[in-house]
Design a binder for these strands. Structure first.
Lengths: 196, 196
DNA sequence: TTGCAAAGCGGAACGTTGTTCCGTATGTTT
DNA sequence: AAACATACGGAACAACGTTCCGCTTTGCAA
Protein backbone atom coordinates (compact mmCIF):
# COMPACT_ATOMS: atom_id res chain seq x y z
CA UNK A 1 0.00 0.00 0.00
CA UNK A 2 1.31 3.37 -0.89
CA UNK A 3 -1.06 5.13 1.47
CA UNK A 4 0.28 4.75 4.96
CA UNK A 5 -2.46 5.11 7.50
CA UNK A 6 -4.25 7.61 5.35
CA UNK A 7 -7.72 6.63 6.29
CA UNK A 8 -6.76 5.40 9.73
CA UNK A 9 -5.68 8.48 11.66
CA UNK A 10 -5.92 11.39 9.33
CA UNK A 11 -7.11 13.77 12.02
CA UNK A 12 -5.72 12.04 15.07
CA UNK A 13 -5.78 14.42 18.03
CA UNK A 14 -2.28 15.63 18.81
CA UNK A 15 -0.96 14.88 22.28
CA UNK A 16 -0.10 18.38 23.28
CA UNK A 17 -2.61 21.10 24.08
CA UNK A 18 -1.01 23.81 21.96
CA UNK A 19 -1.00 21.48 18.99
CA UNK A 20 -4.66 20.73 19.43
CA UNK A 21 -5.38 24.44 19.66
CA UNK A 22 -3.39 25.12 16.51
CA UNK A 23 -5.19 22.41 14.60
CA UNK A 24 -8.51 24.07 15.38
CA UNK A 25 -7.18 27.52 14.56
CA UNK A 26 -5.83 26.19 11.31
CA UNK A 27 -9.14 24.67 10.30
CA UNK A 28 -10.96 27.91 11.03
CA UNK A 29 -8.35 29.94 9.21
CA UNK A 30 -8.46 27.64 6.20
CA UNK A 31 -12.23 27.79 6.05
CA UNK A 32 -12.11 31.58 6.13
CA UNK A 33 -9.42 31.81 3.48
CA UNK A 34 -11.16 29.28 1.26
CA UNK A 35 -14.26 31.42 1.31
CA UNK A 36 -12.30 34.59 0.64
CA UNK A 37 -9.81 33.33 -1.96
CA UNK A 38 -10.99 29.92 -3.05
CA UNK A 39 -9.68 26.45 -2.39
CA UNK A 40 -6.53 27.20 -4.37
CA UNK A 41 -5.39 29.78 -1.85
CA UNK A 42 -1.65 29.56 -1.07
CA UNK A 43 -0.72 27.64 2.03
CA UNK A 44 1.20 30.70 3.20
CA UNK A 45 -2.02 32.70 3.29
CA UNK A 46 -3.66 30.13 5.49
CA UNK A 47 -0.65 30.03 7.79
CA UNK A 48 -0.69 33.82 8.01
CA UNK A 49 -4.42 33.92 8.73
CA UNK A 50 -3.88 31.42 11.52
CA UNK A 51 -0.81 33.25 12.79
CA UNK A 52 1.47 30.24 12.48
CA UNK A 53 4.40 29.22 10.32
CA UNK A 54 3.99 27.15 7.20
CA UNK A 55 5.75 24.25 8.85
CA UNK A 56 2.94 24.06 11.36
CA UNK A 57 0.37 23.71 8.62
CA UNK A 58 2.24 20.77 7.19
CA UNK A 59 2.70 19.17 10.58
CA UNK A 60 -1.06 18.94 10.94
CA UNK A 61 -2.03 18.40 7.33
CA UNK A 62 0.67 16.63 5.34
CA UNK A 63 -0.57 18.18 2.14
CA UNK A 64 -2.90 20.93 1.02
CA UNK A 65 -5.42 18.34 -0.04
CA UNK A 66 -5.65 16.94 3.48
CA UNK A 67 -6.49 20.39 4.73
CA UNK A 68 -9.25 20.74 2.18
CA UNK A 69 -10.67 17.37 3.12
CA UNK A 70 -10.61 18.26 6.80
CA UNK A 71 -12.37 21.55 6.25
CA UNK A 72 -15.21 20.05 4.27
CA UNK A 73 -15.51 16.79 6.11
CA UNK A 74 -18.76 17.72 7.80
CA UNK A 75 -20.43 18.69 4.56
CA UNK A 76 -19.28 15.52 2.87
CA UNK A 77 -20.77 13.59 5.74
CA UNK A 78 -24.04 15.48 5.50
CA UNK A 79 -24.19 14.76 1.81
CA UNK A 80 -23.55 11.09 2.43
CA UNK A 81 -26.29 10.85 5.01
CA UNK A 82 -28.77 12.63 2.79
CA UNK A 83 -28.69 9.75 0.33
CA UNK A 84 -30.66 7.11 2.24
CA UNK A 85 -32.95 9.81 3.63
CA UNK A 86 -33.91 10.98 0.17
CA UNK A 87 -34.48 7.46 -0.96
CA UNK A 88 -37.12 7.10 1.74
CA UNK A 89 -38.76 10.47 1.45
CA UNK A 90 -39.01 10.68 -2.32
CA UNK A 91 -41.84 9.10 -4.29
CA UNK A 92 -39.44 7.49 -6.77
CA UNK A 93 -35.76 6.51 -6.68
CA UNK A 94 -35.07 8.60 -9.76
CA UNK A 95 -36.31 11.69 -8.02
CA UNK A 96 -34.18 10.88 -5.00
CA UNK A 97 -31.18 10.49 -7.25
CA UNK A 98 -31.91 13.80 -8.90
CA UNK A 99 -32.19 15.60 -5.62
CA UNK A 100 -29.08 14.05 -4.26
CA UNK A 101 -27.10 15.05 -7.31
CA UNK A 102 -28.40 18.59 -6.88
CA UNK A 103 -27.18 18.54 -3.32
CA UNK A 104 -23.77 17.34 -4.39
CA UNK A 105 -23.55 19.92 -7.15
CA UNK A 106 -24.62 22.71 -4.82
CA UNK A 107 -21.91 21.70 -2.42
CA UNK A 108 -19.25 21.85 -5.11
CA UNK A 109 -20.47 25.01 -6.75
CA UNK A 110 -20.51 27.02 -3.55
CA UNK A 111 -16.88 26.25 -2.73
CA UNK A 112 -14.68 28.25 -5.04
CA UNK A 113 -12.54 25.94 -7.07
CA UNK A 114 -13.35 22.80 -5.11
CA UNK A 115 -14.65 21.01 -8.15
CA UNK A 116 -11.54 21.83 -10.13
CA UNK A 117 -9.31 20.42 -7.48
CA UNK A 118 -11.55 17.40 -7.02
CA UNK A 119 -11.19 16.43 -10.63
CA UNK A 120 -7.56 17.34 -10.98
CA UNK A 121 -5.23 14.52 -11.92
CA UNK A 122 -2.43 16.09 -9.92
CA UNK A 123 -1.15 13.21 -7.77
CA UNK A 124 -1.00 15.59 -4.83
CA UNK A 125 -4.77 15.57 -4.72
CA UNK A 126 -5.20 11.83 -4.66
CA UNK A 127 -6.07 11.99 -0.98
CA UNK A 128 -8.78 14.52 -1.61
CA UNK A 129 -10.04 12.64 -4.60
CA UNK A 130 -10.22 9.44 -2.60
CA UNK A 131 -11.80 10.91 0.51
CA UNK A 132 -14.59 12.53 -1.39
CA UNK A 133 -15.34 9.73 -3.74
CA UNK A 134 -14.77 6.82 -1.40
CA UNK A 135 -17.28 8.24 1.00
CA UNK A 136 -19.89 9.34 -1.49
CA UNK A 137 -19.67 6.81 -4.30
CA UNK A 138 -21.39 4.02 -2.34
CA UNK A 139 -24.20 6.40 -1.44
CA UNK A 140 -24.61 7.45 -5.01
CA UNK A 141 -24.34 3.84 -6.07
CA UNK A 142 -27.28 2.84 -3.94
CA UNK A 143 -29.44 5.57 -5.42
CA UNK A 144 -28.37 4.53 -8.87
CA UNK A 145 -29.14 0.89 -8.20
CA UNK A 146 -32.57 1.71 -6.83
CA UNK A 147 -33.47 3.81 -9.85
CA UNK A 148 -32.16 1.10 -12.10
CA UNK A 149 -34.20 -1.59 -10.40
CA UNK A 150 -37.26 0.59 -10.72
CA UNK A 151 -36.60 0.71 -14.44
CA UNK A 152 -36.31 4.46 -14.42
CA UNK A 153 -32.81 4.64 -15.80
CA UNK A 154 -30.60 2.58 -18.05
CA UNK A 155 -28.28 -0.04 -16.55
CA UNK A 156 -24.57 -0.19 -16.08
CA UNK A 157 -23.65 3.29 -15.01
CA UNK A 158 -20.95 3.40 -12.34
CA UNK A 159 -21.48 5.78 -9.46
CA UNK A 160 -17.89 6.89 -9.83
CA UNK A 161 -18.40 7.97 -13.41
CA UNK A 162 -21.57 9.88 -12.61
CA UNK A 163 -19.95 11.67 -9.70
CA UNK A 164 -16.94 12.66 -11.69
CA UNK A 165 -19.22 13.89 -14.43
CA UNK A 166 -21.21 16.02 -12.04
CA UNK A 167 -18.05 17.21 -10.38
CA UNK A 168 -16.60 18.17 -13.70
CA UNK A 169 -19.71 20.07 -14.72
CA UNK A 170 -19.29 22.21 -11.62
CA UNK A 171 -15.76 23.32 -12.45
CA UNK A 172 -15.48 27.06 -12.76
CA UNK A 173 -19.17 27.56 -12.11
CA UNK A 174 -18.86 30.50 -9.75
CA UNK A 175 -16.16 32.37 -11.62
CA UNK A 176 -18.07 32.57 -14.90
CA UNK A 177 -21.62 33.82 -14.83
CA UNK A 178 -22.17 32.95 -18.47
CA UNK A 179 -21.88 29.29 -17.53
CA UNK A 180 -24.76 27.67 -15.71
CA UNK A 181 -23.40 24.53 -14.11
CA UNK A 182 -26.61 23.59 -12.36
CA UNK A 183 -28.47 23.61 -15.62
CA UNK A 184 -25.91 21.29 -17.15
CA UNK A 185 -26.23 18.97 -14.19
CA UNK A 186 -29.98 18.92 -14.61
CA UNK A 187 -29.51 18.07 -18.27
CA UNK A 188 -27.18 15.23 -17.40
CA UNK A 189 -29.63 13.77 -14.94
CA UNK A 190 -32.42 14.16 -17.47
CA UNK A 191 -30.33 12.21 -19.94
CA UNK A 192 -30.14 9.41 -17.42
CA UNK A 193 -33.83 8.69 -17.64
CA UNK A 194 -34.41 5.74 -19.85
CA UNK A 195 -38.02 5.18 -20.95
CA UNK A 196 -36.94 1.62 -21.53
CA UNK B 1 -10.46 46.50 -25.36
CA UNK B 2 -8.08 44.64 -23.16
CA UNK B 3 -6.99 42.32 -25.93
CA UNK B 4 -4.55 44.19 -28.13
CA UNK B 5 -4.59 42.79 -31.60
CA UNK B 6 -5.29 39.34 -30.32
CA UNK B 7 -7.33 38.21 -33.24
CA UNK B 8 -5.64 40.49 -35.73
CA UNK B 9 -2.05 39.27 -35.99
CA UNK B 10 -1.67 36.47 -33.55
CA UNK B 11 0.63 34.51 -35.81
CA UNK B 12 2.03 37.34 -37.89
CA UNK B 13 5.02 36.11 -39.85
CA UNK B 14 8.26 37.48 -38.39
CA UNK B 15 10.47 39.56 -40.64
CA UNK B 16 13.63 37.60 -40.24
CA UNK B 17 14.23 34.17 -41.72
CA UNK B 18 15.66 32.58 -38.58
CA UNK B 19 12.66 33.81 -36.64
CA UNK B 20 10.27 32.25 -39.10
CA UNK B 21 12.21 29.00 -38.91
CA UNK B 22 12.14 29.06 -35.14
CA UNK B 23 8.40 29.63 -35.07
CA UNK B 24 7.88 26.49 -37.12
CA UNK B 25 10.33 24.51 -35.02
CA UNK B 26 8.58 25.65 -31.90
CA UNK B 27 5.18 24.60 -33.13
CA UNK B 28 6.52 21.16 -34.00
CA UNK B 29 8.32 20.86 -30.70
CA UNK B 30 5.26 21.95 -28.76
CA UNK B 31 3.06 19.47 -30.59
CA UNK B 32 5.51 16.69 -29.79
CA UNK B 33 5.83 17.63 -26.14
CA UNK B 34 2.07 18.05 -25.76
CA UNK B 35 1.60 14.51 -26.96
CA UNK B 36 4.33 13.18 -24.71
CA UNK B 37 3.68 15.15 -21.54
CA UNK B 38 0.31 16.80 -21.97
CA UNK B 39 -0.69 20.39 -22.55
CA UNK B 40 0.58 21.36 -19.11
CA UNK B 41 4.16 20.60 -20.05
CA UNK B 42 6.62 23.24 -18.80
CA UNK B 43 7.64 25.89 -21.28
CA UNK B 44 11.25 24.98 -20.61
CA UNK B 45 10.64 21.48 -21.93
CA UNK B 46 9.26 22.86 -25.14
CA UNK B 47 12.17 25.26 -25.49
CA UNK B 48 14.59 22.39 -24.92
CA UNK B 49 12.84 20.16 -27.44
CA UNK B 50 13.08 22.96 -29.98
CA UNK B 51 16.67 23.70 -29.02
CA UNK B 52 16.02 27.34 -28.20
CA UNK B 53 15.96 29.49 -25.08
CA UNK B 54 12.81 30.18 -23.16
CA UNK B 55 12.92 33.81 -24.20
CA UNK B 56 12.49 32.74 -27.78
CA UNK B 57 9.33 30.85 -26.95
CA UNK B 58 7.85 33.96 -25.40
CA UNK B 59 8.92 36.16 -28.27
CA UNK B 60 6.77 34.09 -30.61
CA UNK B 61 3.96 33.19 -28.25
CA UNK B 62 3.40 35.80 -25.56
CA UNK B 63 1.96 33.23 -23.23
CA UNK B 64 1.70 29.47 -22.97
CA UNK B 65 -1.93 29.67 -23.95
CA UNK B 66 -1.08 31.29 -27.27
CA UNK B 67 1.20 28.40 -28.03
CA UNK B 68 -1.55 25.92 -27.29
CA UNK B 69 -3.95 27.80 -29.51
CA UNK B 70 -1.44 27.90 -32.33
CA UNK B 71 -0.75 24.19 -32.11
CA UNK B 72 -4.39 23.20 -32.27
CA UNK B 73 -5.60 25.89 -34.62
CA UNK B 74 -6.08 23.49 -37.52
CA UNK B 75 -8.18 21.11 -35.52
CA UNK B 76 -10.32 23.91 -34.17
CA UNK B 77 -10.88 25.05 -37.70
CA UNK B 78 -11.79 21.56 -38.83
CA UNK B 79 -14.25 21.28 -35.99
CA UNK B 80 -15.78 24.62 -36.90
CA UNK B 81 -16.20 23.64 -40.52
CA UNK B 82 -17.76 20.33 -39.62
CA UNK B 83 -20.77 22.10 -38.12
CA UNK B 84 -22.54 23.30 -41.26
CA UNK B 85 -21.54 20.13 -43.07
CA UNK B 86 -23.21 17.95 -40.47
CA UNK B 87 -26.28 20.09 -40.54
CA UNK B 88 -26.66 19.30 -44.21
CA UNK B 89 -25.74 15.65 -44.17
CA UNK B 90 -27.74 14.60 -41.14
CA UNK B 91 -31.43 13.69 -41.30
CA UNK B 92 -32.27 15.88 -38.33
CA UNK B 93 -30.63 18.90 -36.67
CA UNK B 94 -30.56 17.11 -33.34
CA UNK B 95 -28.51 14.32 -34.81
CA UNK B 96 -26.14 16.84 -36.36
CA UNK B 97 -25.77 18.51 -33.00
CA UNK B 98 -25.06 15.20 -31.34
CA UNK B 99 -22.43 14.29 -33.85
CA UNK B 100 -20.78 17.67 -33.67
CA UNK B 101 -20.61 17.48 -29.91
CA UNK B 102 -19.00 14.06 -30.23
CA UNK B 103 -16.43 15.55 -32.55
CA UNK B 104 -15.69 18.33 -30.13
CA UNK B 105 -15.45 15.94 -27.21
CA UNK B 106 -13.15 13.61 -29.14
CA UNK B 107 -10.89 16.51 -29.92
CA UNK B 108 -10.63 17.49 -26.27
CA UNK B 109 -10.29 13.99 -24.90
CA UNK B 110 -7.40 13.06 -27.18
CA UNK B 111 -5.29 16.03 -26.10
CA UNK B 112 -3.95 15.39 -22.63
CA UNK B 113 -5.18 18.06 -20.29
CA UNK B 114 -6.54 20.35 -22.98
CA UNK B 115 -10.00 20.32 -21.51
CA UNK B 116 -8.69 21.18 -18.07
CA UNK B 117 -6.84 24.17 -19.38
CA UNK B 118 -9.76 25.22 -21.54
CA UNK B 119 -12.04 25.44 -18.57
CA UNK B 120 -9.51 26.89 -16.19
CA UNK B 121 -10.36 30.27 -14.73
CA UNK B 122 -6.69 31.19 -14.63
CA UNK B 123 -6.56 34.61 -16.32
CA UNK B 124 -3.49 33.49 -18.19
CA UNK B 125 -5.66 31.23 -20.26
CA UNK B 126 -8.17 33.82 -21.31
CA UNK B 127 -6.65 33.91 -24.77
CA UNK B 128 -7.05 30.18 -25.18
CA UNK B 129 -10.50 30.26 -23.75
CA UNK B 130 -11.51 33.00 -26.13
CA UNK B 131 -9.93 31.53 -29.23
CA UNK B 132 -11.59 28.20 -28.78
CA UNK B 133 -14.99 29.43 -27.79
CA UNK B 134 -15.18 32.49 -30.01
CA UNK B 135 -14.54 30.35 -33.02
CA UNK B 136 -16.73 27.42 -32.11
CA UNK B 137 -19.61 28.93 -30.17
CA UNK B 138 -21.29 30.42 -33.26
CA UNK B 139 -21.04 27.06 -34.98
CA UNK B 140 -22.54 25.29 -32.02
CA UNK B 141 -25.12 28.04 -31.73
CA UNK B 142 -26.37 27.44 -35.22
CA UNK B 143 -26.77 23.72 -34.60
CA UNK B 144 -28.57 24.48 -31.38
CA UNK B 145 -30.90 26.95 -33.06
CA UNK B 146 -31.72 24.49 -35.83
CA UNK B 147 -32.56 21.74 -33.37
CA UNK B 148 -34.61 24.16 -31.36
CA UNK B 149 -36.57 25.33 -34.37
CA UNK B 150 -37.25 21.74 -35.28
CA UNK B 151 -38.73 21.32 -31.82
CA UNK B 152 -36.25 18.60 -30.95
CA UNK B 153 -34.78 20.32 -27.93
CA UNK B 154 -35.92 22.79 -25.32
CA UNK B 155 -35.35 26.51 -25.86
CA UNK B 156 -32.97 29.00 -24.36
CA UNK B 157 -29.73 27.09 -24.08
CA UNK B 158 -26.67 29.18 -24.85
CA UNK B 159 -24.03 27.60 -27.04
CA UNK B 160 -21.41 28.86 -24.63
CA UNK B 161 -22.93 27.00 -21.73
CA UNK B 162 -23.24 23.77 -23.66
CA UNK B 163 -19.66 23.95 -24.87
CA UNK B 164 -18.29 24.64 -21.44
CA UNK B 165 -20.35 21.76 -20.13
CA UNK B 166 -19.00 19.39 -22.72
CA UNK B 167 -15.50 20.74 -22.20
CA UNK B 168 -15.80 20.21 -18.50
CA UNK B 169 -17.02 16.67 -18.91
CA UNK B 170 -13.86 15.88 -20.81
CA UNK B 171 -11.51 17.02 -18.06
CA UNK B 172 -9.23 14.25 -16.91
CA UNK B 173 -10.78 11.76 -19.31
CA UNK B 174 -7.55 10.17 -20.49
CA UNK B 175 -5.81 9.98 -17.13
CA UNK B 176 -8.54 8.02 -15.40
CA UNK B 177 -9.87 4.93 -17.08
CA UNK B 178 -12.63 4.51 -14.51
CA UNK B 179 -14.19 7.68 -15.88
CA UNK B 180 -15.95 7.55 -19.22
CA UNK B 181 -16.19 11.11 -20.45
CA UNK B 182 -17.75 10.22 -23.77
CA UNK B 183 -20.56 8.44 -22.04
CA UNK B 184 -21.26 11.47 -19.90
CA UNK B 185 -21.31 13.64 -22.97
CA UNK B 186 -23.80 11.31 -24.60
CA UNK B 187 -25.95 11.52 -21.50
CA UNK B 188 -25.84 15.28 -21.56
CA UNK B 189 -26.91 15.40 -25.17
CA UNK B 190 -29.65 12.91 -24.45
CA UNK B 191 -30.89 15.18 -21.71
CA UNK B 192 -31.17 17.94 -24.25
CA UNK B 193 -33.90 16.18 -26.14
CA UNK B 194 -37.27 17.61 -25.28
CA UNK B 195 -40.25 15.47 -26.40
CA UNK B 196 -42.40 18.55 -26.08
C1' DT C 1 8.91 22.21 42.19
C1' DT C 2 12.15 21.30 39.08
C1' DG C 3 14.33 18.91 35.22
C1' DC C 4 14.33 17.07 30.84
C1' DA C 5 13.06 14.35 26.79
C1' DA C 6 9.65 14.56 23.46
C1' DA C 7 6.49 17.16 20.81
C1' DG C 8 5.74 21.06 18.40
C1' DC C 9 6.94 25.51 16.23
C1' DG C 10 8.63 29.12 12.84
C1' DG C 11 10.36 30.46 8.79
C1' DA C 12 14.48 30.01 5.92
C1' DA C 13 15.53 27.25 2.08
C1' DC C 14 14.73 24.10 -1.92
C1' DG C 15 12.76 22.73 -6.34
C1' DT C 16 9.47 23.79 -9.88
C1' DT C 17 6.69 26.64 -12.36
C1' DG C 18 5.41 31.01 -15.74
C1' DT C 19 7.32 35.16 -17.26
C1' DT C 20 10.56 39.24 -17.91
C1' DC C 21 14.91 41.41 -19.03
C1' DC C 22 18.98 42.60 -21.28
C1' DG C 23 23.61 41.94 -23.21
C1' DT C 24 24.93 39.64 -27.33
C1' DA C 25 24.60 37.63 -31.93
C1' DT C 26 22.61 37.60 -36.41
C1' DG C 27 19.86 38.87 -40.53
C1' DT C 28 18.81 42.68 -43.61
C1' DT C 29 19.47 46.94 -45.83
C1' DT C 30 21.95 50.57 -47.84
C1' DA D 1 30.95 46.60 -45.67
C1' DA D 2 28.93 49.16 -42.29
C1' DA D 3 24.92 50.15 -39.64
C1' DC D 4 20.75 49.04 -37.80
C1' DA D 5 16.82 46.62 -36.37
C1' DT D 6 15.52 42.14 -35.14
C1' DA D 7 15.87 38.10 -32.60
C1' DC D 8 18.31 35.01 -29.42
C1' DG D 9 19.78 32.75 -24.97
C1' DG D 10 19.48 32.01 -20.51
C1' DA D 11 20.05 34.34 -16.10
C1' DA D 12 16.90 36.38 -12.96
C1' DC D 13 12.36 37.23 -10.69
C1' DA D 14 8.13 36.08 -8.36
C1' DA D 15 4.83 32.69 -6.66
C1' DC D 16 3.90 28.36 -5.42
C1' DG D 17 4.07 23.57 -2.63
C1' DT D 18 6.92 21.31 0.34
C1' DT D 19 10.99 20.03 3.41
C1' DC D 20 14.25 20.80 7.00
C1' DC D 21 16.23 21.97 11.24
C1' DG D 22 17.49 24.82 15.30
C1' DC D 23 14.86 26.60 18.93
C1' DT D 24 10.76 26.69 22.18
C1' DT D 25 7.11 24.86 24.71
C1' DT D 26 4.82 21.33 27.13
C1' DG D 27 3.78 17.60 30.10
C1' DC D 28 5.34 13.99 32.85
C1' DA D 29 8.36 12.11 36.48
C1' DA D 30 11.20 12.52 40.17
Amino acid sequence: MTADGQGAERTARPRRADARRNQRTLLDAAAAVFVRSGVDAPVRDIAAEAGVGTGTVYRHFPTRADLVVAVYRHQIEACAEAGPALLESCPTPYEALGRWVDLFADFLVTKHGLAAVLNSDDPGFQALHASFLDRLAPVCGRLLAAAEEAGEIGPGLEAYTLMRGVGNLCVGAESDDRYDARRMVRLLVAGLRQPR
